[in-house]
Amino acid sequence: MSGPDDDGFAAFVAARGTSLLRVAHLACGDEREAEDLLQTALERTYRRWDRVWHDNPEPYVRRVIVNAAINRARRRAILRILPTHTPPERPAREVDLDLRGMLMDALRALPPRQRAVIVLRYWEDLGEAQTAEILGCSTGTVKSQASKALAKLRTAIGHESLEGVLESAHS
């Protein structure tokens, strides 16, 4: 593919690349793997650009990122390989860096689907229906996975108002 569609794809990547990289990083917990996930997602999107460009392509790319992250996590579980890298610390305005670090560690410890729900619902601020569409599941599944994940995160960081921490942690 070359021509005007290339320009549209390049403009999309330029406009949404940083946000999509953040989704990938939060989905997998590793900066290098996030770059690989995003590259994979963009490659798949580029190959199908003529089919996805007219709709909003961002949900398509998010879904590819999340599915790829879940698949990689499953492969790791089968092979018993655990990630050894930690995400880079970035200054947070309202959240203590220690709390942010604990939150990121707890997020990485969640099962892949629960982590995906938390990333899409709280970091990307998507609704339950949008999250369900991206993950290919029902809104009930999104609700139950979010509830289970939030309970695990509350236990891990010992913070009752986790939703506020999640909102301020990604800003």
Rank of each mutant, 00 (worst) to 15 (best):
D50K: 14
R51N: 08
R51K: 12
V52H: 13
V52S: 04
V52W: 11
V52C: 09
W53A: 15
H54L: 05
H54C: 02
H54I: 07
D55H: 14
N56E: 13
N56M: 06
P59G: 08
P59Y: 10
Y60M: 05
Y60F: 15
V61H: 12
V61F: 05
R63P: 00
R63K: 13
V64E: 11
V64R: 13
I65T: 05
I65S: 04
V66Q: 14
V66D: 08
V66E: 14
N67D: 10
N67W: 05
N67Y: 04
A68S: 15
A69Y: 10
A69D: 09
I70Q: 04
I70K: 05
I70W: 04
N71I: 01
N71P: 01
N71L: 08
R72P: 00
R72F: 00
A73K: 10
A73T: 09
A73R: 14
R74H: 13
R74F: 02
R74T: 10
R75V: 03
R75D: 13
R76T: 01
R76Y: 06
A77C: 01
A77Q: 13
A77W: 04
I78V: 13
I78K: 05
R80W: 03
I81W: 03
T84I: 11
T84W: 01
H85Y: 06
T86S: 09
P87Y: 04
P87E: 08
P91W: 12
P91F: 14
R93C: 11
R93H: 12
R93Y: 13
E94T: 11
V95S: 06
D96M: 11
D96Q: 12
L97A: 15
L97H: 10
D98N: 12
D98Y: 06
D98W: 10
L99I: 09
R100V: 07
R100P: 00
M102W: 03
M102H: 12
L103N: 12
L103K: 07
M104T: 07
D105T: 14
D105C: 03
A106M: 08
A106P: 05
A106W: 09
L107C: 00
R108N: 08
A109L: 06
A109I: 01
L110Y: 02
